[in-house]
């Protein structure tokens, strides 16, 4: 079974449907008609660009290209984490916490899976490395964004409680124990949910792609499982690291709550 190539006309047909949706949105004054159009255009341009980049990279298998693309994805992801914070840390911290917590688990787990599990030669073969790294980074990013946002918001709202606990002799970790746990949990809920309903409600995206591309279903299932496990670990370790670092950063060396290290509230339009 070979892949059936899509012609530009096929895509244009689907594009017209999106335009119809946008028209309906204008008529109903949903206030997102332009957003639908712009998002579709962005997706088209971004994906065409990355398609061309991937084509070039697949033709030149070199570690340096992979590293450059990985770093680019990381920087964009860390910026996105920052954008999703209602009360981000001031200074470089807002960016650094997200970037570090994404970098370490995503890159380590991608390398580990390429070397130890998939076992491809060379291990940085971009056809495997880039999609894997992309999936890990994307999911880890969401987990970290949710976890950090939830944590800083909770501590902000519970300032009186946190300071009362400090005044009663709690260490900073104890004073924000519940907030820390809840935030980590909320960062992990999406991946746990996807694993729980996988195959029952919808086929996971990557598996669908492999099946459409002609893989035997059981091979697709094995890859999907590998990806799920890697995503769960990467999101979990990343979110734990981010929330933990944030909880250290919210206190100074005398265990004083330092909400002044957070920026002011900004409306969250995402």
């Amino acid at each position: 079974m070979a892949v059936i190539a899509l012609s530009p006309a096929d895509l244009a047909l689907a594009g017209i449907l999106v335009l119809l949706l946008a028209l309906l949105a204008f008529r109903m004054r949903l206030g997102m008609g332009w957003q639908i159009v712009i998002a579709s255009l962005r997706a088209t341009v971004q994906l065409l660009l990355i398609g061309m980049v991937l084509k070039a990279v697949f033709a030149n298998v070199q570690l340096v290209w992979l590293v450059l693309i990985g770093l680019f994805m990381l920087l964009v992801g860390a910026r996105e984490v920052l954008q999703r914070q209602q009360r981000p840390f001031r200074g470089h911290w807002g960016f650094t916490i997200g970037a570090t917590a994404m970098l370490v688990p995503s890159f380590t787990l991608t390398a580990l899976s390429l070397i130890a599990m998939i076992g491809i030669e060379p291990w940085y073969e971009p056809q495997y490395a880039i999609p894997l790294l992309g999936m890990l980074l994307g999911n880890t990013m969401s987990g970290i964004a949710i976890g950090l946002d939830r944590f800083t918001q909770t501590v902000w709202q519970q300032r009186a409680i946190v300071e009362t606990r400090l005044a009663l002799g709690a260490r900073c970790g104890e004073a924000v124990l519940e907030a820390r746990r809840d935030s980590i949990r909320s960062g992990l809920i999406p991946i746990i949910n996807s694993m729980s309903v996988a195959g029952l409600v919808a086929l996971p995206g990557m598996m669908t792609g492999q099946i459409l591309a002609g893989s035997p279903p059981l091979e697709a299932v094995k890859y999907q499982l590998l990806i799920f496990f890697l995503i769960a670990c990467s999101t979990g370790f990343g979110t734990i690291a981010a929330v933990w670092t944030a909880s250290r950063r919210l206190f100074d060396e005398r265990s004083r709550l330092r909400l002044d290290r957070l920026g002011s509230l900004r409306s969250n339009s995402h």
């Binding site: 009362t164 606990r165 005044a167 005398r254 265990s255």
Partner: peptide
């Protein structure tokens, strides 16, 4: 004060805020 770990200091120098919090 600065030579005492903060949580131990606060256990010995107890502060009761005007409004107490309960969690």
């Amino acid at each position: 004060c600065q030579d005492t770990p903060p949580h131990l200091w606060r256990r010995q120098v107890g502060f009761l805020a005007a409004e107490t919090s309960w969690w």
